[in-house]
């Protein structure tokens, strides 16, 4: 609990609000102090917490990997190099498994997605009130530490993937080939409008499902952490009941946290694999 005075609803709302920077009601630039204020900022606002955490984690991943890459030896690898090579080979194997065309861009995309999303998801395992309390002590109202519980972040990545799908579809199949793929199947050419609607939805569903799956899983996971954390709220009164609640909070967050280790890895892996599969489909000449 960030404060004794606030209700459960306020606690949950507080935890689900990003630190948003944008044009305030009175026309000046600044941070939103309430969810309503953040909403009013419209599109031209920035979720500073998501942005900063994503930036720091991505930079950390690239810093470590680039350092290993610069000093990579062909001899006996050091511990860190071994670890990095292990991840790289894992990515390389899965990319080789699901991507049949030749494109030097795909494997780095897969690696970046996997490592970056994994690190962002990993923030979910930090104690739920830890960062917000520190932020509050520093005078920051909101701080949502898991970037992947922000749809902006997941859609930001999936839109880039979507752009790549369109680009490579057009590049490999040509405009005519891509249109044919959308219009002349699965039904015969006569049913072109129907086909177009069907395949169009199919195409749009790729980035949307990619982003929503990650967002939904992480958001739900975060939500459960928040609900578990609420159990300890009754600690205020020193009774046997509250002690039991407090104990079960600890046990439940431990259990959910352990289970969540699987989820965060799995979600990062799914996002990466589906991206590779979609790009592979974009490279396929025909179905």
């Amino acid at each position: 609990m960030s404060s004794e005075a606030i209700s459960s609803t306020e606690y949950i709302k507080h935890h689900l609000q990003n630190l948003t920077y944008g044009r305030l009601h009175d026309g000046t630039l600044g941070f939103a102090h309430t969810p309503e204020e953040a909403k009013e900022m419209g599109f031209w606002a920035l979720n500073v917490d998501s942005f900063l955490v994503a930036l720091v984690l991505g930079a950390l991943f690239l810093f470590v990997f680039a350092r290993v890459a610069r000093s990579a030896t062909t001899g006996v690898p050091s511990g860190l190099q071994n670890f990095v090579e292990w991840i790289l080979e894992f990515i390389d194997t899965s990319v080789r498994g699901s991507f049949s065309a030749r494109n030097p861009l795909v494997a780095p995309i897969a690696l970046t997605l996997f490592a970056w999303i994994f690190l962002m998801n990993l923030m979910d395992l930090l104690p739920i009130d830890f960062i917000p309390l520190i932020a509050q002590a520093m005078g920051v109202h909101y701080f949502k530490v898991v970037p992947t519980t922000d749809p902006n972040v997941t859609f930001g990545m999936s839109i880039v993937v979507f752009g790549l799908i369109l680009y490579y579809s057009l590049k490999v199949k040509g405009a005519g080939g891509f249109f044919a793929e959308l219009a002349f199947q699965p039904l015969p050419k006569a049913a072109m409008p129907f086909n177009l609607v069907l395949e169009g939805v199919n195409l749009i569903a790729k980035p949307v499902s990619l982003a929503l799956r990650l967002f939904g899983n992480m958001y739900a996971g975060e939500m459960i952490f928040i609900l578990i954390a609420l159990m300890g709220a009754t600690w205020a009164s020193a009774s046997i009941g509250s002690a039991v609640m407090f104990g079960s909070q600890i046990l439940l967050s431990l259990g959910w946290g352990i289970f969540h280790i699987l989820i965060i890895t799995l979600q990062a892996f799914i996002f990466m694999t589906l991206t590779v599969v979609y790009l592979d489909m974009a490279h396929q000449e025909h179905h």
């Binding site: 948003t20 944008g22 606002a45 902006n152 930001g156």
Partner: peptide, 15 residues
Amino acid sequence: MNINATLIAQAIMFG
């Protein structure tokens, strides 16, 4: 949970 310019920032960062 509002869609805002973070989307663009994230996309650029990803790129």
